[in-house]
């Protein structure tokens, strides 16, 4: 029984989820890309293309220079950073996940030791909880937050939690927990294209445009 569920979530269901994910993400990305841009005849003051690439690469390090914002929103900064570091690290570099990516991309992927993935998992899970609580309490975030955010946070948290349980504390329930982890992960993969979690793909567009504008205006920041 547990094995049947396991085979389902790592077989047909995962396949389906991946199809939905890639299709949905590509759809959302290109739906925006092909809307078109009006031409810009103003002579740029800097190099917009260089800045666009540069900003995409270094944008996550830029916000930290805003001391006064950091002092008010350290939770967002530190929590957000830890969460993204943990989530991205776990998604790509845990051996089991890396092998999946290796199959999908056909490229060799590096893997990371358990000790690092454990630290990342605790960091990501902890910061996610803190961020969610913060979201529920901060007046600005209360205004901005919809159901989507809470659901996404909950889903990611439970995926992280079951993954952590499965690798560390499963005992004899290993296959059950692993199946549950994979089932929830499949749901998360399907959910990404339908939600704001797909912001990762718009990051490239949005930050790219921001860098492009910075290059056009000749500012460094």
């Amino acid at each position: 029984m547990d094995v049947a569920l396991y085979d389902f979530v790592r077989g047909p269901f995962l396949r389906f989820a991946l199809f939905v994910f890639f299709l949905g993400i590509a759809y959302r990305f290109f739906r925006v890309v092909f809307l078109g841009l009006p031409p810009d005849y103003a002579r740029p003051k800097g190099n917009p293309y260089y800045m666009a690439v540069k900003k995409i690469l270094i944008k996550p390090t830029m916000g930290w220079t805003f001391n006064e914002i950091f002092s008010r929103r350290a939770v967002n900064y530190v929590g957000g950073f830890l969460f993204h570091l943990g989530f991205i690290g776990l998604t790509f570099l845990v051996p089991a996940h890396a092998l999946l990516w290796q199959e999908i991309t056909g490229l060799p992927m590096p893997t990371m030791p358990n000790i690092i993935s454990d630290i990342l998992a605790y960091a990501a899970l902890g910061s996610l909880v803190v961020l969610t609580v913060h979201r529920a309490l901060n007046p600005v975030l209360k205004l901005l937050t919809g159901k989507d955010e809470y659901f996404a946070n909950f889903l990611i948290a439970i995926v992280l939690f079951t993954g952590l349980l499965a690798t560390r504390w499963a005992g004899s329930g290993y296959v059950w927990l692993l199946s549950l982890h994979m089932l929830l992960a499949d749901l998360l993969i399907i959910y990404i294209p339908f939600s704001r979690l797909s912001h990762f793909i718009y990051y490239f567009l949005s930050v790219g445009f921001m860098g492009w504008n910075a290059g056009k205006r000749g500012v460094s920041f």
């Binding site: 790592r10 995962l14 396949r15 890639f22 092998l99 199959e103 999908i104």
Partner: peptide, 15 residues
Amino acid sequence: SVVEGGFGPKEALLS
């Protein structure tokens, strides 16, 4: 951990 039934670059590219 890989997908049973296979999901390689071809499938990814297709989708």
